[in-house]
Simulated assay, not measured.
Amino acid sequence: MDTLATLRQALLTNREQTLTSIYQRTFPLVRRYVQQHGGSAPDAKDVFQDALVVFYEKAVAESFVLTSSVSTYLLGISRNLWRRELSRRQQLPATSLSEEHTQEVAEEAAPGPDSRESLAVLDYVEQLGERCKSLLLAFYYFQQPLEQIAGSLHYGSIRSATVQKFKCLERLRKSVRAVVQHALVHS
């Protein structure tokens, strides 16, 4: 694809093969950029697909002038789209868990005729510490996306929040297992 005319002709006559070739050459660059800037591989795919659509629409237009390589142009579009997405995500209301939320959880799990177990689990969650409690309640009870949790709890990335969620959950499981084993041994 030496010239823009050749590229335009390839896109018009054999669009799928041409876009596949461009995708294979350029997507790894976009994925690396998005992941280095707080995104995931699926985020990179979404951004790159949007960038390909923008590129295709411009490339088949007669007035389009390409002043760089296709990969450089697509990476530029992808960077702009990713920056816009990060900005949009930061503007989402970051709900932090306050005492009010914790109280709601406790009230909903208040002991009824046979709900001692649910209250006991909340007791174990309380023992994990504020950070773990906030993370687990946000994810499992309030069903907040990890992006939002990572932002509101000041984790460096979504991956960090995911790892911490796993660690907190493992600590909770160990606590519950220990009590169950103790109860079985002493009953």
Results as ranks from 00 to 15, higher is better:
residue 70 V to S: 02
residue 70 V to N: 01
residue 71 S to H: 04
residue 72 T to W: 05
residue 72 T to G: 05
residue 75 L to H: 02
residue 76 G to C: 01
residue 76 G to T: 12
residue 76 G to I: 01
residue 77 I to G: 01
residue 78 S to R: 01
residue 80 N to P: 00
residue 80 N to H: 01
residue 81 L to V: 02
residue 81 L to F: 05
residue 82 W to E: 06
residue 84 R to E: 13
residue 84 R to K: 13
residue 87 S to P: 00
residue 88 R to M: 08
residue 88 R to S: 13
residue 88 R to A: 14
residue 90 Q to K: 14
residue 90 Q to G: 07
residue 91 Q to H: 12
residue 93 P to G: 06
residue 93 P to K: 12
residue 94 A to D: 09
residue 96 S to V: 15
residue 97 L to N: 00
residue 101 H to Y: 11
residue 101 H to W: 12
residue 101 H to I: 08
residue 101 H to M: 08
residue 102 T to R: 15
residue 103 Q to V: 13
residue 103 Q to C: 07
residue 104 E to N: 11
residue 104 E to G: 02
residue 105 V to G: 04
residue 105 V to K: 00
residue 105 V to D: 03
residue 106 A to Q: 10
residue 106 A to K: 12
residue 106 A to F: 11
residue 107 E to H: 10
residue 107 E to G: 05
residue 107 E to V: 10
residue 109 A to Q: 10
residue 110 A to K: 10
residue 110 A to V: 11
residue 110 A to I: 11
residue 111 P to R: 11
residue 112 G to Y: 11
residue 113 P to T: 10
residue 114 D to F: 14
residue 115 S to D: 09
residue 116 R to W: 15
residue 116 R to M: 14
residue 117 E to N: 06
residue 118 S to D: 10
residue 121 V to W: 01
residue 122 L to Q: 08
residue 123 D to F: 10
residue 123 D to C: 08
residue 124 Y to C: 05
residue 124 Y to N: 04
residue 125 V to E: 05
residue 125 V to D: 02
residue 125 V to K: 04
residue 127 Q to P: 00
residue 127 Q to Y: 06
residue 130 E to Q: 14
residue 130 E to I: 15
residue 130 E to L: 13
residue 130 E to Y: 09
residue 131 R to I: 14
residue 134 S to N: 14
residue 134 S to H: 15
residue 136 L to R: 03
residue 137 L to A: 03
residue 141 Y to A: 04
residue 142 F to N: 00
residue 142 F to W: 09
residue 144 Q to K: 11
residue 146 L to A: 07
residue 147 E to V: 07
residue 148 Q to W: 03
residue 149 I to K: 02
residue 150 A to W: 02
residue 151 G to C: 06
residue 151 G to P: 00
residue 153 L to G: 00
residue 154 H to L: 12
residue 156 G to I: 07
residue 159 R to Y: 11
residue 159 R to M: 03
residue 160 S to L: 09
residue 163 V to K: 03
residue 165 K to E: 12
residue 169 L to P: 01
residue 169 L to I: 05
residue 170 E to S: 04
residue 170 E to I: 01
residue 172 L to Y: 06
residue 173 R to F: 13
residue 173 R to H: 14
residue 175 S to L: 15
residue 176 V to P: 01
residue 177 R to A: 09
residue 177 R to F: 13
residue 178 A to H: 12
residue 180 V to C: 02
residue 181 Q to V: 11
